[in-house]
């Protein structure tokens, strides 16, 4: 019993070190493990996959660097999917501190696929007021964004000429780290019947399952696992996919921690 009691009093820094090594080692040995994509991610993939070329997809950047490792890979995977299918992208965002992450990804992937600004993709930027922005865009996008991010009037951009409201947008993909996804559903979907896919951190994703079942959203990409699944589906395995191995190792470690912690606790309680 002595060992078990010692186990219960282990220094937290030893736990930190074990955690750090558990993340590091799978990377060093380059292990990757197969996974079957989750149905909610496959659903999102199919919704985008069946859009005819030239359809407009709106992407919203509602996260920042604090959740970049989870959400950024999703954004890359979806952008690759859209550009490979010749879909057009309008990007905007509601989280100012994350906006540059969105532009960086958009410029990267556009370059990869040889896409031209103004013809294949447009960046609108940010306006404060979340709900008000969403509602007014349902009436006329220009009432919120007279110009794009660089100050060019929207009508001078060829791909924006026929895009005025949500009616001209095939699917909206929200990348979320907070409650903005709920706003998208409650304003853009409920009022204007906009088709929505939500992708976001594993913290917010569980709250969206009710929307998925009520068909208020047509796809859900949650956490690193969701991102890895999407990378898998577009046959471009990258950060998220290879991150799933350390992820798996740490999940196992945490479950072991919970069990060991409880054994130590029980041992101490019995002693008393």
């Amino acid at each position: 019993m002595k060992y078990i009691e010692k186990l219960a009093k282990i220094d937290r820094r030893i736990i930190y070190l074990i955690l750090f090594l558990t993340v590091l080692l799978p990377y060093l040995f380059k292990i990757s493990l197969p996974m079957k994509p989750l149905p909610e991610v496959v659903q999102a993939y199919r919704e985008i996959d069946r859009l005819p070329a030239g359809s407009v997809v709106m992407i919203s950047i509602d996260y920042d660097a604090a959740s970049m490792p989870e959400v950024q890979p999703m954004l890359y995977a979806i952008l690759r999917h859209c550009f490979s299918k010749d879909l057009k992208i309008i990007m905007l965002g509601h989280w100012p501190l994350g906006i540059p992450l969105g532009i960086a990804a958009l410029e990267d992937v556009a370059k990869e696929y040889g896409k031209k600004y103004g013809e294949d993709y447009v960046f609108l930027g940010y306006r404060p007021g979340v709900a008000a922005v969403m509602i007014n865009m349902g009436k006329e996008i220009r009432s919120v964004f007279r110009e794009d991010y660089w100050g060019t009037p929207l009508d001078s951009l060829p791909m924006m000429r026929n895009v005025h409201t949500y009616d001209d947008i095939a699917i909206l993909v929200g990348f979320e780290a907070g409650s903005t996804g709920d706003y998208w559903v409650q304003y853009a979907q409920a009022r204007y019947n906009q088709k929505i896919i939500l992708g976001g951190t594993a913290v917010v994703a569980p709250d969206w399952y009710p929307y998925l079942q009520s068909r208020q959203i047509v796809g859900l990409i949650g956490g690193l696992r969701g991102a890895a699944d999407y990378e898998n589906l577009v046959h471009h395995k990258a950060l998220a996919y290879y991150g799933m191995t350390p992820q798996a190792a740490v999940h196992i470690l945490i479950v072991i921690f919970i069990i060991l912690g409880n054994i130590g606790y029980l041992a101490l309680r019995r002693r008393k």
Partner: peptide, 18 residues
């Protein structure tokens, strides 16, 4: 939700280690 929260936090660490 807790399981998912663990997943999220670990992913952030993975990002930094990478």
């Amino acid at each position: 939700s807790f399981g998912y929260t663990v997943m999220a936090r670990i992913s952030l660490l993975i990002g930094r280690v990478y």
